[in-house]
Design a binder for these strands. Sequence first.
DNA 1: ACGATTTTGTTCTCGCGTTCACAAACTTCT
DNA 2: AGAAGTTTGTGAACGCGAGAACAAAATCGT
Lengths: 235, 235
Amino acid sequence: MTSARSRKSGRARDERPERGIPEATVARLPVYLRALTTLSDSDVATASSEDLATAAGVNSAKLRKDLSYLGTYGTRGVGYDVNYLRYQIAREIGLTQDWSVVIVGIGNLGHALANYSGFASRGFQVAALFDVDPERVGEVVGDLKISALADLEVIVRESAVAIGVIATPAGAAQGVCDQLVEAGVSSILNFAPAVLTVPGHVDVRKVDLSIELQILAYHEQRKAHGFGALEAGAL
Amino acid sequence: MTSARSRKSGRARDERPERGIPEATVARLPVYLRALTTLSDSDVATASSEDLATAAGVNSAKLRKDLSYLGTYGTRGVGYDVNYLRYQIAREIGLTQDWSVVIVGIGNLGHALANYSGFASRGFQVAALFDVDPERVGEVVGDLKISALADLEVIVRESAVAIGVIATPAGAAQGVCDQLVEAGVSSILNFAPAVLTVPGHVDVRKVDLSIELQILAYHEQRKAHGFGALEAGAL
DNA sequence: ACGATTTTGTTCTCGCGTTCACAAACTTCT
DNA sequence: AGAAGTTTGTGAACGCGAGAACAAAATCGT
Ligand SMILES: NC(=O)c1ccc[n+]([C@@H]2O[C@H](COP(=O)([O-])OP(=O)(O)OC[C@H]3O[C@@H](n4cnc5c(N)ncnc54)[C@H](O)[C@@H]3O)[C@@H](O)[C@H]2O)c1
Ligand SMILES: NC(=O)c1ccc[n+]([C@@H]2O[C@H](COP(=O)([O-])OP(=O)(O)OC[C@H]3O[C@@H](n4cnc5c(N)ncnc54)[C@H](O)[C@@H]3O)[C@@H](O)[C@H]2O)c1
């Protein structure tokens, strides 16, 4: 109802481009970015939507529609310039700037995350590591020293950290979350199996391994049950 | 090509009743299960949809609709019996049986996963660990010894492993995936940033940390722009 | 120059998922 | 027992996303 720019006549009045990209599309852009990077590394200069879609594991119509939300970056009859499109997606996602990240809870998982090189290569700088355990504070992981929780607020503010990663036990997650938010963090990635409550301006995403396994188990169970007995009976 | 090729394959009138639960619901059931477990541990006997929804971080109407796909397990005017509902959900997901899991690629992340106790407590038994690196084979992690990739097929078949976890570098993921599928694994959880191609009967779920961070970055960038262009001066 | 060919950008339709709203079903109070 | 109060289960409305299909725009061959 409100989108009054379906026609392509150049009405560039006060009509803002309205930067809203559908969530489902936002979630796929990083996948396209990865595919483009791979192609670029193989010295592929241009790629069709079909090529890209295959590399990204999606339908080509979906890919084209996704890209159309960003702008008109392709050339009909030719395809997309790999490096140009790569830049445009990166810009859209916000990867032309670096982001500072802190990780809280440096146990099994926290160590793995802190040692992961895939962060920096995508523009995410791990600015600090925190743990509540006095035994752990001071330990060096990667090229960082684990800091005490008490220093969280100062460090977060000084490094302009926008993203916090929670890798503590579930019971501590809400408390840590509150501290991060208090310190000014407005995006949180939560690995703890706990529901976090945050103010409206804060984004939370969760990664829950157990849930993933349970979803797989559900389908696995159905495969086992379904195709055994009641395959013959339709109706 | 041809113009009149629109074969509208009219779906047959049979349509089996198909005990299918919507995917979105399946993904939330584990969350409800967790909330119920927490309530049960607090000796709460019954809970209303409102209580449960709050604990699970969802809308109560959504929760009720989700549960209605499983059956009629609530009592109007009262709510749900916590332990009864917990059992019903567990049964539906397939958690009344144990599942064997193997992890391939015991590096930073693989170690964390192998040491994670949250698996066993939810009915997922880690049956074996694999790595291609001869230096790593034989190393003990948790209470398991890392096996050689060559033994994958035999071990998977002997332990009736249905679920495989891939924690190798991206370049090795497809190869490992093929080996797992070849050995009979039909559900895969992939941590490597790579698109996996599998036969139709195999389920793949991916966990991609970088994508999560990029999605957060996108929203973070939008928040910043919305309030007008502030200078980039941090510190 | 121009038609054949390729491939994008977009429209249209359909199905899924979310949410509202309310009758039905159960409990409690009088 | 009957009225009042609770809470479930679900029908219906609605919005979003997926995919098919196609017109528009670009290149290529002659
Ligand atoms: N390890 C895995 O593979 C894995 C997989 C899925 C989910 N998880 C989840 O990730 C989280 C971390 O798992 P883990 O295996 O690393 O656990 P862990 O016990 O090894 O590490 C937790 C760390 O958090 C620290 N901590 C506790 N309370 C804290 C607080 N208030 N502030 C700061 N630090 C605090 C502890 O000192 C410890 O170092 C858990 O919630 C777990 O359920 C882990
Ligand atoms: N560490 C993290 O926090 C993190 C976060 C997100 C994603 N990932 C992804 O998870 C994967 C593993 O990360 P990591 O940090 O543990 O890497 P890593 O290099 O520490 O470990 C990879 C392991 O896989 C083994 N391996 C390599 N090829 C193999 C093969 N063909 N078969 C079996 N094993 C093989 C290696 O020997 C090594 O032990 C990577 O794809 C990474 O991008 C890791």
